[in-house]
Each structure stands twice: as structure tokens, then as C-alpha cells.
Amino acid sequence: MSSIAALRAHLLATGLAGAVGTLREGSLRSYRLFAARDPRVTLGLAARGEWSAGDVMALMADRCGVSADPNERTGPDVIDPERTLTALDAFADQLAEVAARRGAVLLGTGHPDRLLGFYAGLADALSATGCLVLTPAQGRCVDITTRFGVRTYNLEYVRGVALVRAPGARGAGCETGAHTHSPLPLRAAVEGLAEQEGPLPDLVIGDHGWVCGAGQLGMRAIGLADTDDPALFVGEAEGRVSVVVPLDDGRRPAHYRPLTRYVLKRACLSQ
């Protein structure tokens, strides 16, 4: 994207911002569950403050631009593109800082079917500038509780980006990995680093439990989050997550490529 105006238009045209695919009723449910400290939505973050459902809604209205009216209960949720653009700039500034000191970075996603390409572009650029892209605990088993019970996944890396796959799923058609909100893959990766006595990440980049899990452990973390993922924004509000970019995280993978180009250009990491 050659300009802010073009990127804003792209966000609105693709539904990454503006009226998004996430439904209002789902977001409200997440706010209630977060207030109840349900681990399905806390994503590994133990909030320090008292967060009622109303508090969470007010925060999401401030950080994302969703409606602050509790009587609005149905229809598509809304993300203010200006908030997305502002957060993308802050996200890029974090990349520039870690690149300037050739820091160690860990990238991981719970949305590999949608967001793998976005993160892989960042990993390639950071590696090219001299950053150490960490890939610890390759192949380690991670037991994650799902709505179908406990499932065992393997921690794997694709182009420097961590994800989890069901055993035997490698090469299964176009499958890239499992969708998960769990912080356990992040914890497995950190355990792997400790066992290797290698450097801890100067920056964790990702979504869901990768960001919240890192923030809970005191690591600097930045990421992307939808309107039904309040934990990342609570982490940001409490100072344990550095930057969260509000956007719809369930769109076509190609829709995120202009965002990769934009943040890399702003961070002076374009190849």
C-alpha cells in the first residue's frame, strides 16, 4: 500500500476493519466469560484488576471502536480503521526497535490458516536484518483442552513461525495447523529455550495465547486481536502487552499481505 488512505480503504474493503465478520453476540459473550475468568478467553493472562463485563466492553470500545451500548446485542461488530492504523504504526515501531539491536524474536500463531503468511513475512525480514528468529522445542507434544476434550498436538515451525498440528497432520492437504487460543504452546517453547540455555526472546509476536502467555511471563509481546479476544487488550491496558492491533483475524490470508508490507516499510525492514 502506497499511502495511509489506500491502506484504510483496503481495511474497509476486505472487512479487516469497519463492519467485521465477528458477531456482536459472540463478543459480548467473550466479555462476560473474561469477567468470570474463564480460561477459554483469558488465554493465559491472569488479570491484575477487577474487570466486569461492563469494564471489558468499555475497554474494547476505547481500543477497537466497538459499541459501548450494552443494548446493542446482535449484528456484525465494528472496528474503527483509525485505531487499526494507529496500532499498526506502534507495532512497526516495536519491530524497528528489536531489529535495530539485532534482538531475538519468537513468532507464533493460533490462527495459522489465516495469519501464517503475515507473521512469516515478518520473520523473513527480521532474520534478514540480523535478528535471531527462535524455533525452540520443535516437535514437542502439547496437551491442550478443547471442547472435544484434551487433544495432543505437536509444536512445529513453518518459515520461522510456531504453530501446533495434530500428530500425523503434516502434509494433510492444505492444512497448516490447528486453531488454538491456548498459552501452552508458548510455555512449551519457553521451556525449550530454558533447557537449551539459549536466549529468551526480546520480543514475542503473535496472537491469542502466544501474546497473553508471553505477557503473563513478563516478556515484551505484540500482536493482532479481534473484538472477541479481550484478553490481549486487557493485557495492553495493564501494561503487560506492548501493542495490540485490532482487526478481524478470520479473513482470507491474502488480505493481510498489505499489512505486512506496510509495517515492514514503516520499520525500515522492507526487502
Rank of each mutant, 00 (worst) to 15 (best):
L259S: 13
L11I: 12
P81N: 11
R251Q: 15
V66P: 00
G49Q: 10
A90W: 12
Y262L: 08
I144W: 05
P201S: 01
R240G: 09
G26P: 02
V164A: 10
D62C: 05
Q138P: 01
A17R: 08
L269H: 07
G139L: 06
K265C: 10
L203N: 02
V142P: 04
L186G: 00
H181C: 08
D38M: 01
S52F: 11
T42P: 01
V243M: 05
L193A: 02
R165Q: 13
L200D: 02
L122F: 10
D207H: 08
G213D: 09
L88I: 12
A194F: 10
P112V: 13
A221W: 01
R159D: 15
D249H: 00
S67Q: 14
R257D: 11
R24E: 08
T176I: 03
R140Q: 10
G213K: 06
E25S: 14
D113L: 13
D38T: 00
R48H: 03
Y157K: 06
L247G: 01
A189K: 04
L11M: 12
D93F: 01
T146P: 04
E156A: 13
R63D: 10
P199W: 04
A237W: 11
L33A: 10
V142K: 03
R170Y: 07
D69N: 09
P258S: 09
R159S: 11
Y256G: 05
T227A: 14
R102N: 14
A46T: 06
R159W: 15
L217K: 08
R187P: 01
V164S: 12
G168E: 12
G18H: 11
C141G: 07
P246G: 06
G209I: 08
G117H: 12
E82S: 08
H111N: 03
H255C: 09
G130W: 12
P201A: 07
G130M: 04
L203W: 05
A96P: 14
R165P: 03
E97N: 13
M1L: 15
Q216W: 05
R240H: 12
A46C: 07
G130A: 00
G108K: 15
A92E: 15
Y153M: 15
L106K: 11
C174F: 08
P253I: 02
A225P: 07
G235M: 13
G239H: 03
P246H: 10
G160Y: 05
